[in-house]
Design a protein around this nucleic acid. Structure first.
Length: 490
RNA sequence: GGCCUCAUCGUCUAACGGUUAGGACAGCGGGUUCUCAAUCCGCUAAUCGGAGUUCGAUUCUCCGUGAGGUCACCA
């Protein structure tokens, strides 16, 4: 088995999911690695759909897969929606290809029709298990199988029972005992091929050079090797990815263990670049101390030989952090567009574009993902930008730590300070310098700062008063201070 | 049960056979002009166990142990 492809051969990788539901992070990561490998080698990336099990098929899956890949910026050169030299990329439309190879194998005596019913095979299985041995169909192989008429399953005849050894691009030398080799089904009784046959035929016809897949396939590789041999095909390079484990236990992450639809992350307000960054770092690392990378950097840095052997856990807190970092990387315009997607249209309209822009840092600093913007709005944390707050005189007096007379005195002075500022001075730093100069005259600056901040926001917790004043503007600031002063007089 | 794979801080991970075993997330503590957030600084914390090879093992070998996967007319 080759572990390198010839210099003159183009790298061709594929992502070949079955349409059995939404895509979760495990599948996406496999796609990402295969895609990066093709892209960094100026190769070809194929999207093929393996829909040979009509029982498990879920309508709408293909659209969801396509949408998920597109969201992440994964583009394919051949396959679903774009076509390509192999013609069809939906396996159910390629049945004639599989039948052709199946017939060839049967005519060479390398495959045979399975004359037994499912029940009979089950009995063989029970018999073996009762004897404490693993079930191997080949031990019950019929001596004179009937001619294959297409209604029976067609099985590969394993003629050389041996220990299999092969090289994996990630794991290195691998092997499996003869128990891993059995007469497996190539064509099912419904006429559809199994994955075992279909993927091998397709990878051959589509010139695939590297197969990347999750480690649950590792124990089936000896069977694939036997089929490659029967078909006289040189196997592509195989790379076995480590599993992604569930966050809590140590189970492999699957849909039953809470693996979410990748599109749910999009809807919750994660950036696709952050999702990509997060996913590719599970089971792979470029080796440096860089933690935040863009999709472009990923393509450049990805190195299949540096993929981890052991399983990695899914850690949502790291995802939060990564998303935040990617949010900071956005331009102001992009940040605004992002915020606008999650904030209510009423708020955005009332706020206006200029004020929304000034509000941006306040929001971006306080969230990890988009949905939290809506939470902030609903909790009233952003209301200060639009409306004059309702004030509580006790809170205004620094929660009762000082008298109304004292508070009034401070606010009067601050009002003068703001009056002295002109529009070009209404910058956060300028406001801060002016107000702090005054506040520093007191042993506890909170005596001045708290009433100001509260008068402007009406919130126990809020952004600092300088930022707030900058956002709402000088006139609105003066107005709110005046309202607070009136309350103190009453 | 058979076969296979894997094993570094709680988590993701780094370390030509030679490092005080590094970074990041989380946690904790502090600074940064009242609060929240952000930011900066610091702290806690790991080579599964046992043999062997070697001057020297996280790294190589073997044996345990633990975890995961697989034993379909699913992929």
């Amino acid at each position: 088995m080759p572990d390198k492809i010839p210099e003159n051969k183009k790298v061709v990788t594929r992502f070949a999911p079955s349409p059995t539901g939404y895509m979760h992070i495990g599948g996406v990561r496999t796609a990402l690695f295969a895609w990066a490998l093709a892209r960094q080698n100026n190769g070809v990336f194929i999207l093929r759909i393996e829909d040979t099990d009509k029982e498990r098929e879920v309508p709408g899956s293909i659209d969801q897969i396509v949408e998920s890949l597109k969201w992440l910026g994964i583009t394919w050169d051949e396959g679903i929606g774009v076509g390509g030299p192999a013609g069809e990329y939906l396996q159910s439309k390629r049945l004639d290809h599989y039948i052709k190879y199946a017939k060839e194998l049967e005519s060479k005596g390398l495959a045979y029709a399975d004359p037994y019913t499912v029940e009979q095979v089950d009995e063989f299985r029970k018999k073996s298990e009762a004897e404490g041995r693993p079930f191997l169909y080949r031990e019950y192989r019929p001596e004179n199988p009937p001619a294959w008429d297409g209604t029976q399953p067609l099985r590969l005849k394993i003629t050389n029972v041996k220990t299999s050894t092969w090289t994996d691009a990630i794991r290195g030398e691998l092997s499996a005992g003869p128990e891993a080799l059995d007469d497996f089904v190539l064509i099912k009784s419904d006429g559809y091929p199994t994955y075992n046959l279909a993927h091998i035929v397709d990878d051959l016809e589509m010139n695939v050079t590297h197969i990347l897949r999750a480690d649950e396939f590792i124990s089936s590789v000896p069977k694939y090797l036997a089929l490659y041999e029967a078909l006289s095909i040189t196997p592509p390079i195989m790379a076995t990815l480590p599993p992604i484990m569930a966050p809590d236990g140590k189970k492999k992450l699957g849909k039953r263990d809470g693996a979410k639809d990748i599109l749910a992350y999009r809807d919750e307000g994660y950036l696709s670049s952050a999702m990509l960054n997060f996913l590719v770092f599970i089971g792979w690392n470029p080796g440096g101390e860089k933690e935040i990378i863009t999709p472009e950097e990923f393509i450049q840095l990805f190195d299949i030989s540096k993929v981890q052997h052991s399983g990695g856990g899914f850690n949502e807190e790291k995802l939060h952090w990564i998303n935040k970092e990617h949010l900071k990387l956005l331009s102001q315009k992009e940040q605004l567009d992002f915020v606008l997607k999650y904030i209510s249209s009423e708020f955005a309209k009332a706020c206006g574009e200029e004020k929304c822009n000034r509000l941006l840092p306040v929001i971006i600093d306080r969230i990890s993902y988009g949905k939290q913007i809506r939470d902030m709005e609903e909790k009233g944390e952003l209301a200060f930008a639009l409306t004059i707050p309702k004030l509580d005189i006790h809170v205004l007096n620094w929660n009762g730590k000082q008298s109304s007379a004292e508070t009034s005195q401070y606010l009067e002075k601050i009002s003068e300070i703001f009056s002295a500022l002109n529009d070009s001075n209404m910058k956060i730093e300028t406001i801060k310098d002016a107000v702090m100069k005054y506040a520093n005259e007191f042993p506890q600056r909170g005596a001045v700062l708290h009433p100001l901040r509260y008068a402007l926001t009406g919130l126990a917790n809020s952004p600092d008063p300088f930022t707030v004043a900058y956002i709402i503007g000088r006139d609105e600031t003066l107005k709110r201070i005046k309202i607070a002063l009136e309350l103190l007089k009453s």
